[in-house]
């Protein structure tokens, strides 16, 4: 077999050394750094993109949180406004009711006073009329003229007796 012919060994070993050395130089100086550069650049880009995606997601979450917080605040505020409006209305209703009630009370009292005065006046007139009537009846029946004040006293006594 030609493999065991030592005469070809020097040439084989010489060219093996030359070719292997050249290949090693080409690989270590040119090919491998070039590939490694592309691979690391790609890795860097992928990592970058992933980082940015994570950052954007965080920002989106923050925005959602802020929005929800604002919403909650607005809701609380709206609630407060509604409550104070309710209270204002209630207060207004209360004061108005009170005012009206007071005015009504004054008017009612005035009316009552007027009624009382009219009744008193009427009562006094009734007494005078009764006294006049009694004076007239006595002078007609008995023919005696009775003094006006006496007749009034007698009417007062009669009214008193009858209650």
């Amino acid at each position: 077999m030609p493999q065991f012919d030592p005469s070809s060994f020097p040439s084989q070993l010489f060219w093996l050394a030359v070719c292997f050395a050249v290949l090693y130089a080409l690989m270590s100086r040119v090919a491998l750094p070039r590939i490694a550069e592309v691979l690391t650049e790609r890795q860097r880009r992928v990592d970058n993109d992933r980082d940015r995606a994570a950052q954007l997601r965080n920002e989106a979450e923050a925005a959602i949180q802020a929005y929800e917080r604002a919403l909650a605040e607005a809701r609380i505020q709206a609630h407060g406004i509604a409550k104070s409006a309710d209270e204002d209305i209630a207060r207004l209703v209360h004061t108005r009711t009170k005012e009206v009630a007071e005015r009504l009370a004054v008017q009612v009292k005035g009316g009552e006073d007027r009624i009382a005065a009219a009744r008193d006046a009427a009562l006094t007139q009734v007494r005078d009329i009764a006294a006049d009537a009694a004076q007239a009846m006595v002078s007609r029946l008995v023919g005696v003229s009775v003094d006006g004040s006496k007749a009034l006293d007698a009417v007062g006594v009669a009214i008193q007796e009858r209650g």
Partner: peptide
Amino acid sequence: VDVSFTNSALFMVLAVVASY
């Protein structure tokens, strides 16, 4: 010493070229 460029050497060179 005989270090002739042989068919073996040719294919070693081809391997280097092909790798490159």
